[in-house]
Structures are given as structure tokens and as C-alpha cells.
Amino acid sequence: MNIFRLAGDMTHLASVLVLLLKIHTIKSCAGVSLRTQELYAIVFATRYLDIFTSFVSVYNTFMKLVFLGSSFSIVWYMRYHKAVHRTYDREQDTFRHWFLVLPCLVLALLIHEKFTFLEVLWTFSLYLEAVAILPQLVLLQRTRNIDNLTGQYIFLLGGYRGLYILNWIYRYFTEPHFVHWITWIAGLVQTLLYADFFYYYFLRFIGGRGVE
């Protein structure tokens, strides 16, 4: 564990907590894309299948349970909790996210490390996570400005994988084994997709106004 990876995990945890805070306390999911949340639930479900077969550390298992639990509970809140569901922007959140799932699955079947069930699904989860934010970014552009909590949620979610890239660089130079190039590329694509959001975030958000 190095400082970059710990910072990345904490940033990721913070993004999930910010979203849960928003949904649970003010019972609102305005500006949040349910489709992105559904994609993230699939990402964690397919990435953490090894939670039962391989034990890495208490921290690792604990964080996996947190991410699994939070992503599914956010989807549940947005779908079935009456008060929260009412604030969901169904008309605007129309990105065909199932069109993202199939190409990622095909790509994982074609390009992977090892052709085993767990490995292909793990690779699929990497590809899917790289594009999972798209419905949220599209919703963002449609709803124009968003509230601070949603802006911070997206900022933290985008930042965590950027910190992971620093972690991969650090591990490359300091450890005998390497991180697979598929992980590198998926992580880079994912972080680059946030580029224009980061641009507006710093321009507007730091300037004291909401993100537009």
C-alpha cells in the first residue's frame, strides 16, 4: 500500500459517502444519473467476485463490501425510495447505458489477461468503469448547473482513478511485479473522460459559484 493508492481509495470512499449523504439526508437525487449508478453496481459486482475466493487483507475485503453495499443501496434508493425517486430526473437521464455494457463485454472476451470466468469479468469491470460516468456527464450537460454535493461527488469520483495512476507509476518503479497494461489504459481513458468536467469544476466551483 502506498500513499497514492490510499489517497485514491479514500477519495473514492469520500465520493460514495458524499452521494449517500446527499440522498439519505436531503432525500434528493436531483442531478444524479441512476444509469451511472447502475453501471457502477455492475462494475463492483463483476470486479469483486473474488471476495469469497481470494483474501488479500481486512482492509481490502472491508472496502469491497463498502463499495458493493453503497452502490447497490444508492440504486435501491433512487429506484424504490418514494421521496428520493420523486427527485430523480427520468426525462433527462436517457443515455443508453446498456449500449455500453455489451461492447465492454465483447472487448473483455477479446482482450484480457487470462481466459477464465473471473478474469474476463474482472477485465469487463475495468472497461465498464472507464465509461460508467458517461450517463452522468451527459445528464450534467442537460441539467446545466448542479448543486455542490453532486459536483463534489463527480470531482471525487474522477479524482480517485487519477490517484490510482500515480499509484501504478509508483509501483512500477518500486515493486518487482507490475500492473497489467489493460488496467493502465482503462484507468487513463476513465480519467481523461473527466477532463472537461475538471476544467469547468475548477473554473466555476473554485470561483464560488455552482458548477454550470
Binding site: R5, H12, N60, F67, E113, E175, H177
Partner: peptide, 10 residues
């Protein structure tokens, strides 16, 4: 030659 890739990340 680096060893096999790691799988200890989230």
C-alpha cells in the same frame, strides 16, 4: 523480467 501482475487493488 517483472513477475506476474498483482491483484491486490480495489
Amino acid at each position: 523480467e517483472k513477475e506476474t501482475p498483482i491483484k491486490d487493488e480495489l
